[in-house]
Design a binder for these strands. Structure first.
Length: 602
RNA sequence: GACCCGGUAGCUCAGCUGAAUAGAGCAACUGCCUUCUAAGCAGUAGGUCAUUGGUUUGAAUCCAAUCCGGGUCACCA
């Protein structure tokens, strides 16, 4: 069994409490259960859980051996329903949990369709993720963002929170104007319909065209004797884009019409991608509506003395006492800056939803920004302030380094999903296990496997860390992957389809003696609720991904050694069917919380 | 320059609120399909946990310094 920290796992909790009681009775010593270190027992020793004794040896002036034996003896005598044996090795007290404890657990949970799910806790959490720009299609980095945001929302929801999923669309600014100008210059009225292109890709192509032309124009100006800086400033296409931004802000009708037209193409494209990858939102904010927010907050901040004004009229906050710098919150021309908008939006969100926590799934290059945002909100004493939480995730890099649009190394989201689905089609055909599927069933299966592989790959890593994506090697269908878990699920379902009758599962399992591998599976299953807690509290779906991978692995080991269909006795068969059933449920549930489907057959 | 994050097997990653000989997956090598799906199972090999010093009964884990990599410190978003 994989060893890992057993922070809040339920038997471990019970063991701590029992041990604390034992310390009290034996030595009149008051120890908090939380201060007792309980680990999974290493496979080479007998037992499932281990109490680490070193911390108490000095205090009690006893040898580790003596302490272990006294404590073990006490626990065995007073908690005989829980412990069946113990041994002491060095400072470690290894405890064996009784078969009846495990069998009881399985008997109670095998048909529980809300295993691991917590009741509503009355708290509300907003999760903002995705947050695309409307000048180019989604790429690999957006996929990590989307999968993370969606998954953490699902996990928190299962942990009892009410969830509001939101997205802020960056639909205004100079970058959109660049696409617009290029379209005016080069498109000859072309549309996604006339070119048969997906709208976001269509608009993205004009963004690229802008940059190509811009580069051409600057080079031309440089040959005419301008410096690089001058040329970049003077290039006509850049000036046109800047003028267009002014026109947009002035609300000029033809600019607004073009803007709306191009954004609507992009949204149609995004919607298609979102639908494919299973992303959805309860509320979408548009920056064109929020970019003026927060200005009144600057006034109140000035009145409160949180902000100060410089001679040129610009408004600042001094965060040097907090180890940061001075930050501008309003330009001298009176317009709001990025951070001010964000404060305004935070207030808006709070007024609308009254969330206890507001999670922003945003890349780690904005760590500083969110630190500032929260600090300012706190200094303004906004009710939303303490709930601000930046779920910072690392960039996805390629083996060659960072993705760069200028060098054409950006991995496009649609292309990648297509490729994953193609690979899963190819592998499925090679294996030839689902030849009786009809076309629609096959399509669904390819999608399930291809997206499963992709999502699992991006979610199995600690969000905080940057990760490397190797297009050739990273996506595998063996080992620590989505398809491995899907496959394990499909195999279990295949057995259950044949053997799972009401009688077979509901029978008595009381007389069973558990084999090692059976115990391993049950023990691991029992930790699912605690892992859900951990994944939610730490905003970390990778904890869940690692857990279900281990569950699948442990179950497969069990299955290769012991037969369910040809179990040694009817009681054994019932027990193993319960085991299979709860495993299938947990794998399926765990995957669902990662946004991944599991097939009945594959 | 200041601040933040990271450096664990050839590669990708766990472990980092201190505890037993540091774990997976991939890649390499060996076995296992006449009984529940071989997208599987069992095994072999592979590590001075960046370096140095410190705290501790005990350090990959905590502290300090150094080296390497990344990010941020815009009247950009």
């Amino acid at each position: 069994m994989p060893s890992q920290k057993l922070g809040k796992m339920s038997v471990a909790v019970t063991i701590r409490e029992a041990a604390a009681k034992a310390f009290n009775s034996l030595y009149n010593l008051d120890i908090k259960p939380a201060d007792i270190l309980v680990n999974a027992t290493k496979p080479e020793f007998e037992g499932e859980y281990t109490i680490v004794l070193f911390a108490f040896v000095k205090q009690l002036k006893k040898s580790p051996d003596a302490l272990g034996n006294e404590l073990g003896g006490y626990l065995l005598q007073h908690e005989s329903h829980l412990f069946s044996a113990f041994n002491v090795i060095k400072g470690f007290l290894n405890l064996s949990v009784t078969d009846s404890y495990w069998i009881n657990f399985l008997q109670q949970q095998h048909s529980n369709t809300s295993f691991g799910r917590k009741p509503k806790n009355g708290q509300k959490v907003m999760v903002e993720y995705s947050s695309p720009n409307t000048n180019k299609p989604l790429h690999l980095g957006h996929l990590r963002n989307n999968f993370l945001g969606w998954s953490i929302a699902a996990i928190l929801e299962a942990n009892g929170f009410d969830i509001v999923k939101t997205c802020i669309v960056n639909d205004r600014g100079i970058h959109i104007c660049k696409s617009m100008i290029a379209w005016q210059l080069f498109a000859n009225g072309a549309t996604p319909q006339t070119t048969g292109q997906k709208g976001d890709h269509f608009v993205g192509d004009y963004y690229v065209k802008f940059n190509d032309e811009y580069k051409r124009q600057t080079e031309e100006l440089i040959t005419k004797g301008l410096t690089k800086e001058q040329a970049e400033k003077e290039a006509p296409i850049m000036k046109a884009a800047q003028q267009m931004l002014l026109d947009w802000e002035a609300g000029q009708p033809d600019v607004m019409a073009l803007w709306q037209q191009m954004n609507s193409w992009v949204y149609a494209g995004f919607d298609e991608t979102y639908k494919r990858i299973g992303t959805d939102f309860d509320k979408v904010y548009y920056e064109s509506n929020t970019y003026l927010l927060g200005k009144d907050l600057v006034e109140s901040g000035l009145a409160k003395g949180v902000f100060f004004q410089k001679e040129d009229g610009s408004v600042w906050i001094d965060l040097t006492a907090d180890g940061l710098d001075e930050k501008i919150v309003r330009r001298k021309d009176g317009t709001a800056v990025y951070i001010t908008q964000d404060i305004g939006l935070a207030v808006n969100k709070y007024d609308e939803y009254r969330c206890d926590q507001s999670i922003y799934v945003v890349g780690d290059e904005q760590n500083y920004h969110f630190k500032v945002l929260k600090l300012i909100a706190q200094k303004l004493q906004l009710p939303a302030a303490d709930g601000i939480y930046h779920l910072s995730y690392g960039m996805v890099e390629l083996p060659t380094g960072k993705m760069k649009s200028r060098e054409g190394t950006v991995v496009d989201a649609d292309d990648l999903v297509d490729e994953m689905i193609n690979i899963s089609r190819q592998k499925t055909e090679e294996l030839g296990k689902v030849k009786d599927f009809n076309a629609a069933e096959l399509e669904a299966l390819y999608n399930t496997i291809g997206l499963g592989a992709l999502k699992f790959f991006l979610l199995r890593v600690d969000p905080k860390k940057r990760m490397v994506f190797n297009p050739e090697e990273s996506i595998d269908f063996h080992g620590f992957t989505g398809p491995f878990i899907q496959y394990t699920h499909a195999r279990i379902k295949s057995i259950l389809r044949k053997e799972e009758t009401a009688n077979a599962v509901a029978g008595s399992t009381a007389g069973n003696t558990l084999l090692m591998l059976e115990k391993d599976v049950i023990n691991w299953l029992e930790q699912f609720p605690a892992v859900m807690d951990e994944a939610g509290n730490e905003h970390d779906p990778s904890k869940l991904a690692i857990y279900i991978f281990n569950l699948a692995k442990i179950f497969n080991s069990f299955l290769s050694e012991h037969s369910i269909v040809y179990a040694e006795s009817p009681e054994k068969k019932t027990l193993r069917l319960q085991l299979a059933r709860l495993t299938a449920y947990t794998l399926s549930k765990g995957m669902q919380l990662l946004g991944i489907q599991v097939p009945e057959r594959m």
